[in-house]
Design a binder for these strands. Sequence first.
DNA 1: GCCAACGTTGGC
DNA 2: GCCAACGTTGGC
Length: 154
Amino acid sequence: MNHWLMKSEPAECSVDDALAAPDATVPWVGVRNYQARNFMRDAMRVGDGVLFYHSSCAEPGIVGIARVASAPYPDPTQFDPKSHYHDAAATPEKPRWMLVDVQVLRKTRNLTLAELRADPLLQDLVLLRKGSRLSITPVEAHHWKTILKRLDAA
DNA sequence: GCCAACGTTGGC
DNA sequence: GCCAACGTTGGC
């Protein structure tokens, strides 16, 4: 099983928004970066662990534990001319953007970006790499373990 | 609002 | 295929 960290802007879809959805499950719409798309399309499997991360907000950090809840399928927003995520080059026959559903398993305290950075065991977490902007990053097993421990210890 | 660090686009 | 210009991300 693989592990992932997935960023969401709380103004768009917070962990509370996701929890309020049916089955606490939301389609991860709006990813428009090929590397992040490829993770969802090619590497994720149902049941993979996901760290739900809030970005572009006052206190960025990990705010929930989730799981990959579907196989990849086309992001419907790419076909919607009214959507902010519309992509004129995409057609249902030739979709460009794929996503998975993400199911929140539990909300956690906010394990902040500052705390992550300060943790000696998390120095090489992909999220923390210099210049890293990817909205979806892989999380190594030992990082996952450390983060779960930190989340429980508060 | 700033800006570093990337990613994408398009002319050549 | 190069690379300059431009756009985006996202913390601060």
